[in-house]
Nucleic acid binder design. Structure first.
Lengths: 348, 348
DNA sequence: CTTTAGCACTCTCCCCCTTCAAGTGCTATC
DNA sequence: GATAGCACTTGAAGGGGGAGAGTGCTAAAG
């Protein structure tokens, strides 16, 4: 009996064949079917023996006695690991991708289109998020009075991300005071990270008691109301291709739960954040997802970090059914991830 | 035989009962069922006669001989029109809505949350869009150099909407030139509508040949690259609650098509734009949607314009199955539309 | 003239049964 | 170790045969 970690040549051959057949047909795979398609001309009986072993090792399951075998999560895991033979992306995909991503200028737009393109190229939903790091350097601030005690704060960072936030103040400030405050920040802190600006401002406000009174009071009021706070992440989560999943014959209830989760942008961000990080080079395939996220039972995440140089700027992923064309999807995700670096590196 | 437009008291009674029963059960309604639940104690036979008439007038259909009757689109139309008895919103809904919309400060946020709340309160998807009118008055402009020949344009309008756009220029401009250009616009054109600014700028650029050379050249370069162009509308379309539809027993194929359409933000914007406008006061229910949008067969749109004062700022709607709680949904849409006016009016 | 009761008829749905095909495990054989 | 053969299991598919719900029609009652 082979141990789970290491299985022989023939076992691998057969397991791979089963996984692939099951992916394309969706029905339990029997020994005869396999024997017919297998080029090595093994007899059904032989295959049955191997299959029995694979059931013992946890790679296969039987829905019931006398049905064919169905791959377990472990089988998919093994299949994907063994799949590492770098395949080139198909010209069709390449065209589709470059058509859709051509002319992108900023990260947001790139990610938005990426999620779309991923949904086109795969049979799952395309997901892309931008990680809003607090290390962003401040470029420009503007405050606009929008009514009594209401101010619109606009923050532009070096990386070209614009955040705006409508705030309610505890007391009213005239536009001139707002301009003074904005000028003060722009002149003193351009190039600082937003975090540092906040800290330094807090220090100065606390320190300067009387002298700069009016300016400092304005700044105090503004920072208190969250002028420099991170934007809620939801605007930087892009999910597309939900329709793809409906086409599949997934269980209705599972599907509903997944869709519900995908609509909670924060959870999506969290999910990708948990599984993708800079340290890891390439595409990551997460199969046993149901342990962390129960509603993702039967779904697979194929994702990669989106980097510019060494810096991680976001994540992109496909979430699809376990029965999907792994090779194809992995290749596409990997290709786009590389494109991301290339396109945005040459532009910035 | 009653003509289609005008039907008698009893017919109406029975038609209403059929529609309501069908909405709640989803199964063809028979004469006996109706006779039992009907307080007037009419016999099944009488009801059958009426039903036959209603079939003739096009209000009902039979899936097959000897099945109950099913309402047609015409029946829903009639039912909804006759429903106009303004009902008050339920306290539960009211709570839910105010909980979710509390603390909203800008239109975008309001609409985003609205789409969410609509999906919670109804059995369909919640949709909300902001109409970006070009009549917005300019408040502040900022240009930020993001790399060679790359500039980020940030435009703040009076209504508190911030638009940003990354542009590629034909030639490189240093930050100082960008600042000069921005200052020029801010000082000369604050309060103008964006359209007018563009026109006037074009005029001045064409006119001043040599004098302001450097500034005008910068401005020319910037406007040519679309610094003041409308943002693509897709960021202002909010769709939520897709999961609701999956729960229903809709036809899979129809559902897929609908979801696909909903993901094309431009189409959604177009759709709402076509059916909702300021002139019309209140909620509008569109039932025969399949003629304009084939993939919306079996779906209904319940929408209202979102106004602040007399000005239309957006639209909100529920798209759901024909079998839905119309009264409930209409009330909710109407309530939120009013809330929109109230909340944003008092704040701005 | 409208309403109702009665009745024969028509469907669909569901349950039960049988048959069928696919697949299995085991054993004996090469 | 691989294979062939065989008996066994099981779900899927197909075919009655009610049962139930509903209809249309006709004739009688109000």
């Amino acid at each position: 009996m082979p141990n789970p970690g290491q299985i022989g040549h023939r076992e691998r051959e057969i397991l791979t064949a089963i996984v692939e057949t099951y992916i394309s047909t969706g029905e339990p795979v029997g020994s005869r079917t396999l024997s017919r398609q297998n080029r090595d001309g093994l007899s059904p009986a032989t295959i049955r023996n191997v299959m029995a072993d694979l059931v013992d090792s946890g790679f296969l399951e039987q829905p019931h006695t006398s049905a064919g075998r169905v791959p377990t999560a472990q089988a998919y895991r093994y299949y994907v690991d063994q799949l590492s033979g770098q395949t080139l992306i198909s010209p069709a995909d390449q065209n589709l991708i470059s058509e859709n991503l051509q002319g992108t200028v900023d990260i947001q737009q790139f990610l938005e289109r990426t999620s779309h393109v991923l949904s086109l190229v795969s049979s799952g939903v395309g997901v892309a998020i931008a990680t809003t790091g607090p290390r962003n350097a401040l470029d420009h601030v503007y405050f606009s009075r929008q009514g009594t005690q209401k101010v619109l704060a606009v923050v532009v960072t070096n990386s070209g991300v614009v955040r705006d936030r409508m705030m309610r103040l505890d007391r009213d400030l005239p536009q001139t005071d707002l301009d003074t405050a904005a000028n003060y920040i722009n002149e003193n802190f351009r190039g600082w990270t937003v975090d540092k600006v906040k800290a330094e401002l807090a220090r100065r406000i606390a320190q300067e008691r009387s002298e700069y009174d009016r300016l400092m009071q304005s700044l105090k009021e503004l920072t208190k109301s969250g002028a420099l706070t991170e934007e809620e992440p939801s605007r930087n989560v892009f999910v597309e291709g939900v329709a793809n999943l409906v086409a599949k014959d997934e269980d209705r209830e599972h599907l509903r739960e997944l869709l519900k989760t995908l609509e909670e942008k924060e959870r999506v961000a969290e999910l990708l954040g948990a599984y993708l990080d800079t340290r890891q080079e390439a595409v990551r395939v997460v199969i046993g997802l149901e342990e962390a996220v129960p509603e993702m039972r039967n779904f697979v995440l194929i994702g990669a970090p989106a980097r510019v140089g060494e810096e991680m700027r976001g994540s992109l992923a496909v979430i699809g059914p376990t029965r999907m064309d792994y090779q194809h999807t992995i290749t596409a995700v990997s290709y786009i991830a590389q494109l991301f670096d290339k396109l945005l590196n040459e532009n910035v």
